[in-house]
Design a protein around this nucleic acid. Structure first.
Lengths: 236, 236, 236, 236
DNA sequence: CATGAATGAGTGTTCATTCAT
DNA sequence: CATGAATGAACACTCATTCAT
């Protein structure tokens, strides 16, 4: 990732050389961002000490402030770094998917679990929920870069199912939330109450997701006799 | 000294009159609890300053500690006042409910919305999710005083429905989460991303809940042909 | 002690009637002073809470301030209350004592232990040592009312012994401290380090005093060959 | 990573060079320790404000906590710096001492006076007496770090004297207190009543100590005919 | 006289941020 | 570029003192 450091030009590079600074922005900050993600997810924003982030990244506290002008900026950078990129691939996969819509939906839930839910990244939605109010700008950013593409992806799946007669006609706006809510609740639960000992009913995420999927299918099933969702879609 | 004490009215105004004390303990703390709820919901537990709570209630910092021995106790009192204190009545209502189990479930969702979801109290679940990790004692408290009774209440409804043949047999542990997750997600959404302008799809909570209810019913329906939840219940 | 309360003149007694206040100064304050002595001795001045003093005396915090304008004044009153009186009797006893001077000295040490050292009053010297610097006026008072008569009493005993040829001639000024220092050190030790668990060598006060007495006698003995104190008395 | 690490100069300037850290830890803290000693002695432990210590040392409050993790640790450091740290040297001196035991004891008293008694450090025993009860952890520390080694040192001197036939056999436990009590009483007196004007009999410490030493010697003298301490030693 | 609710200044400690080297 | 020593604002909680009743 870094080019080999050439001692020959060290003396020549002006301290404020923008190019050099640019390069750095990719180098050392990477370790800082990783450390920050770990700690923010683990302890939350307020309880994370910048010194510990720096230490975990192997640099000094002063160095951290060389790259991020404040703890808040660090937080924003962490969120930016860890969320957007995946949707492109995800959309492609959906595009190429050839199975039934229920299978496609199951595939979505499963890959969410594998790529987000079961990983450290699952801490980010929780992070955003917790801090959104104190970082409205970040919240807006998250809406545009994460919530919107995510919702769009799910909406596409649902629409495909309806179009192919595999799902009954539904109100897509709320249908999306029906898929999202259980996933996001699970992510948040994992990183808050679920991480505190003494839980009455220890969730097994895989089972939780299976049950939620069954539930979804019975709500979406074109053959189901239930009244659910059988209302004229309010928005396309 | 001021005026001769008239024994006749001793019962009404004796300095240690328990009733008077009761009134006091209910009077000023009431304003403190209201102020605390506002601020906790608005800024979170850690970011709320006890002094500001006091100021908003119109008393001094010292007075607050006269009624609540610590910030954590204040928080617990807020939770008791707004959530756990209601389970008794709620349980009674359920006990006396005579309609069908679907109606009972709908009644639960509706009263949750009216009493919690639509009020400032809906900020509390979000708050707990955000702060649980950093305040384990509060998390334990919340588990015992809120999550447990809440889950038990829902489980009772589900069991009644199954027993009366109105719901298909389900795994109750996950069934409870199927009811809870959408509610809690809504509460959290309201107090985080939902409270920041510029949302792509503005949820209308009532509609969201209606759709979620339909969904639930189709998943639970005894007559439905879908595969959902049709697994042997794992716990009674 | 108090005159019976005549309801007839209650209305007439001006609230600030000094006589009435005087009366009170003997009545309720007695309990307050006792409670304060206990607590000051037990926990020191700073660590004693006026509220606890009041509670132990069975009155409210406000009432305490009715009698003592501040915590410091309470402290002064406690010290004043508990120190002077005993010397008159003590001096008389010494006056009448007819045994040998060593026996008289032993008698002094023993009665100090019985009347002061073994009682709560032993806390007062410790109190004074601890707080003298912050209450210079009290320190002066203590010097005049306690240290001075106490020293004089001991000096009288020593002089008697020298006059009767039972003690060798000594410098009385320092001789007095030779008697006092072990006693006062014991009192302070009892109320500080001695009251904390885990002492290496648990003192038994009676044994400590016996050994100190032997020591004193060997230093004072007219027959002893040692060089001790055999210098021309420098004062008195 | 920044520059190739040259093993050759690691010992001199590595950022984590323990020697450099050592120097730092001795530099500024020295001023803090001096300021703390002054203030603790002057006002006591509880009444001393860490901010004032910092201010007097010319640094900020935060800096103080950079070097001492708490006020109690600061106090312990003061005690170590001024008292317990000296026992090693003191023990060595005793070890090498070749004169008679009475001379050795006199040497001990004199060096106590020069190194502790006559210096600000003499305020520490008084301080401990005053605050021990309210700071049990400090009391324990003081017992282990000061009282115990101090007693052991004196006990060694006494045992040597008895072993060499220069002192008569004594109960060492109380013998130690016979040496200690006058010293500690002097220290306390200096910092409490002795520091308030208007003393009846102004002690001259050097004379006080000389007299106490004579007294001790006559009590310990092997040739003395007195009864003092001539009891079978209770502990070896 | 007596109460006890109310006050608010004061304390030890933390931690994001700065800056001289 | 990197460091880490220094900063100082901030915060929960205490408690002597006041005063309306």
């Amino acid at each position: 990732m870094h080019q080999p450091i050439d001692p020959a030009n060290l003396a020549e590079a002006a301290p404020d050389d923008p190019a050099r600074r640019e390069r750095r922005k990719d180098a050392r900050p990477g370790e800082l961002l990783a450390a920050a993600l770990d700690l923010f997810v683990e302890k939350g924003f307020a309880a994370t000490r910048v010194e510990e982030v720096a230490r975990r990244a192997g640099v000094s506290k002063g160095t951290l402030f060389l790259y991020f002008s404040s703890k808040e900026e660090l937080f924003k950078a962490v969120v930016r770094e860890n969320i957007s990129g995946r949707f492109a691939q995800w959309n492609e996969e959906i595009e190429r998917f050839e199975g039934s819509s229920p299978d496609m939906l199951r595939y979505c839930l499963n890959s969410w679990w594998e790529r987000i839910g079961a990983t450290k990244a699952s801490g980010i939605p929780k992070l955003m929920m917790s801090e959104a109010r104190n970082f409205p700008e970040l919240a807006r950013f998250y809406q545009h870069e994460v919530m919107q593409p995510g919702s769009a992806l799910i909406e596409r799946v649902l629409k495909r199912g309806v179009a192919r007669g595999e799902f009954r006609p539904i109100d897509f706006k709320y249908g999306v939330y029906m898929v999202l809510a259980p996933l996001l609740y699970l992510a948040m639960w994992k990183h808050s109450l679920g991480s505190c000992g003494g839980n009455l009913a220890q969730l097994v995420p895989e089972e939780y997701l299976a049950v939620q999927f069954d539930m979804l299918m019975s709500g979406l099933s074109a053959t189901g006799a239930g009244p659910a969702l059988a209302r004229p879609p309010s928005s396309a």
